[in-house]
Design a binder for these strands. Structure first.
Lengths: 144, 144
DNA sequence: CCTTGTTAGTTACAAAAACAACTATTAGCC
DNA sequence: GGCTAATAGTTGTTTTTGTAACTAACAAGG
C-alpha cells in the first residue's frame, strides 16, 4: 500500500464532523430537553412538520434520514404532549397527515428562535466567507 | 422577539453537522464493523492508542471527549479481541497504560489506510480551497 | 498513621437506539 | 374477484448508551 504521509487520522473528516456535531448540539439539546422534555428525534420530527407542513411520517423518514420506528415513537410522544395531531388520509388510509397544534407551533417557533441564536453564536467563530463555505459544504454532504 | 427572515431551520449548523456526520460515517462504519466487528467507540479508542502511543483510558476520555464508562467497555472489548494490552503503572497503580498488540497495530494501520481513502473520496466533492476551509472550521469546532 | 477528599476505572441499572417481525391497507396482475 | 407483492405504520426484543453508585489507589493535612 502506498504511504500517505500527509494524512493524519485526527483530521479524518467523519471524525471531525462527529466531534463538531456532538459539541455543537450539546447546548441546544440541553435547552429543548429541559424546556420541553423532548428527545432529539422528537425535536427533529417537530421541526420537519413545522418547516414543511402537513407531512406524513414516511416523508419525514425520507427527508431526515430517520428509521420509521424512531419516527413512529417520536410522533406518539409528540402526540401525548399535544404538540401534533394525526389524520388518516381518505384517499389512502395507510397514510396519516401530521399537523402541529397551536402548542406545537408555539414550541416550534420558540425553538427556531433559540436555534437561530445558537447558530449565530456558533458562526461567530468564523469569518463570513468561512461560514458560507462551511455551510455550503455541509449542505452538500447532508443531502440524502 | 425580532423576526429573523434569513434563518432557515434546515440550515441550522448542528443539524447539518449531524446529518453530514451520519452520512459520511456510514460507509466507514460498515467497513470496520464487518471487517473487525468493531463498534464506533472501539474504533475511536483504537485510533487514539494507535495515534498517541501508550496512553491511559483517562487520557482517551479527555482527548476524545468520551465518557469513561464508554472507554472502559471499549477497552475491554479490544482486549478480548487481543488488539491491546494493559499494564498497571508502578508509580501510580490507578493508571493503566494501554498498548496495541501486533494484531491491533495491523488493524490500526489497515483502517488508517482505508480512512485515508474514504477521506479522499469525501473531499473529492469540493475544491481544494473549500476543503481546506471546511477542515479548518471543523478542527476549530471539534476542539474540546 | 489516620481521616477526608480526589482520581482511575468498573459495575449495575435505566433510557434509548437498532433490528426484526408484525398488522392493515393498497396496487398490480392473472 | 382473488392472489401476490408492496407500502405505512406499530410493536417486541435485543444492543448500546447514559447515569449513578461503587471499588481501589493515592494525596494532603492534622
Amino acid at each position: 500500500m502506498a504511504r500517505d504521509d500527509e494524512f493524519d487520522i485526527q483530521h479524518f473528516l467523519p471524525y471531525l464532523l462527529n466531534q463538531a456535531a456532538d459539541r455543537s448540539s450539546l447546548e441546544f439539546q440541553r435547552y429543548y430537553k429541559s424546556r420541553y422534555s423532548m428527545l432529539r428525534t422528537e425535536w427533529r420530527v417537530l421541526f420537519h412538520i413545522g418547516r414543511f407542513g402537513g407531512i406524513t411520517a414516511k416523508q419525514i423518514c425520507d427527508r431526515a434520514g430517520l428509521h420509521k420506528t424512531k419516527v413512529s415513537r417520536a410522533v406518539r410522544a409528540l402526540e401525548l404532549k399535544r404538540f401534533l395531531t394525526r389524520e388518516t388520509q381518505a384517499a389512502d388510509r395507510r397514510n396519516e397527515t401530521l399537523e402541529l397544534t397551536t402548542a406545537g407551533r408555539a414550541a416550534f417557533d420558540e425553538l427556531c428562535g433559540a436555534a437561530a441564536r445558537f447558530d449565530r453564536d456558533l458562526m461567530a467563530g468564523f469569518t463570513a466567507a468561512e461560514g458560507q463555505v462551511l455551510r455550503q459544504c455541509l449542505v452538500k454532504m447532508a443531502r440524502l
